[in-house]
Nucleic acid binder design. Sequence first.
DNA 1: CCTGGAGTTGTCCTA
DNA 2: TTAGGACAACTCCAG
Length: 483
Amino acid sequence: MSAKAPIIVWFRQDLRITDNPALLAAAETGRPILPLYILDEESPGTRPLGGASRWWLHHSLESLAANLCERGLQLLLRRGMAQVELSRVVQESGAAEVVWNRCYEPGAVARDTAAKEMLCAAGVSAESFNGSLLIEPWKIETGQGAPYKVFSPYWRRLRELYQAPAFAELPQSLPAAKELMPDELVGWSLLPSAPDWAGGIRDSFSVGEAAAQARLAKFLDDTVVDYPNNRNRPDHADTSRLSPYLHWGEIGPHGVWRAAAAYLDKGGAVARGAEAFLRELAWRDFNHHLLFHFPELAVSNWRKHFDGFPWRDDPVGLIAWQQGRTGYPLVDAGMRELWHTGFMHNRVRMIVGSFLIKHLMIDWRSGESWFWDTLVDADLANNVCNWQWVAGSGADAAPFFRIFNPISQGEKFDPVGSYVRRWIPEIAGMPDKWVHKPWAAPDYVRAAAGLVLGENYPEPMVDHANARARALKAYKALRGEVD
DNA sequence: CCTGGAGTTGTCCTA
DNA sequence: TTAGGACAACTCCAG
């Protein structure tokens, strides 16, 4: 056993051993390493994990533990208030140092600040690193010294400033600290039992950093060349689907950037695809920056005049939306994809969001909350910023009159209906022409397809034109411009 | 402090 | 069939 006091690597949303600055820094000290994860469901300000996130976290921790094990380390699991557990592990281990990669959500910042103070007071050194964002929120600002609120100038500035840090290899074998009594992962009950609803998620995703790397490599090799067009096509599986891995840090944004930048240098369509992809990656940073600078974004309208919006209280409508029974095939397909796989194609997210907010006039927070519970990539910053973007209440948001038409969006982005047929077998027999608007088809067409509206598939719960007019009127009234 | 161009992802009507 | 403009006004941000 080493005579040196150990160093604790506190894992949080950086569940990887490759390209992990805190772990690398720990390795460089030569101290015995104690990798620690704390499941904290108790600290004030902690939002309880959604169901899909709990499933993902379970598997991610298994994967991290296995990867650490290959380097000779044992992941220590603890459960409780982060500060209390961390303090306990410091005492039990006699650790002299703690390192971690920074988190940026308001609750996490408060937690980490308190942890740092506690460690300082105990004479334990604490150091944190950036492994989770391209550029940290305090390192990019407008010419006036303010945080960016508009994406395009932010992106231009990021392109000027950003350089991916060099990759450093983690040693094959690391000195381990003395093992402490661990919590058992199974005891955390992160997986669903009765019923086990996770089958569809299992079929859709492999969890862990090896899977993340493989997905990124495949995406860049096969798909990125057509990304600017095909990323909008839910009937093609042509987005990167890296979001859950990025959320849990099974892959880091610097690594993604480095890999994609190699394609930037190739020129032509591949380079244009890589550029478009990195722009999307930058949206993730932008959202995290916005939430960091404006923490109230998580709960309240960014544009205050939206506080007066006449949201409808409609629990029945909300449930129909959640269950994919609105009668609009594209909306229902998206909601069912979400329920079955823990994921939804990005364009469809905008469409179902627009439908909830504008067609049903239900508060965006109801949708945000459902996404939080069901998405495997549920991420506070991305979730609230994107919902506020759709609502029109956010920073740099869509203008209010941009109301997605679920029929024309379907015809444009799922032209032969393969996406809606996949998720709504009830309408699978409808011809392409009617598959996005089955109610409009002649009776004999529906009869031939075995579709009886109101029986095996709902009538549209609102009329598009009426709902659109109602939403526009409500927004107009909000601005005091109704005649 | 002022100025002026710009601002992720749409829809619908008209000519 | 297709292309263009209205939809609203406001805030952001660089110069």
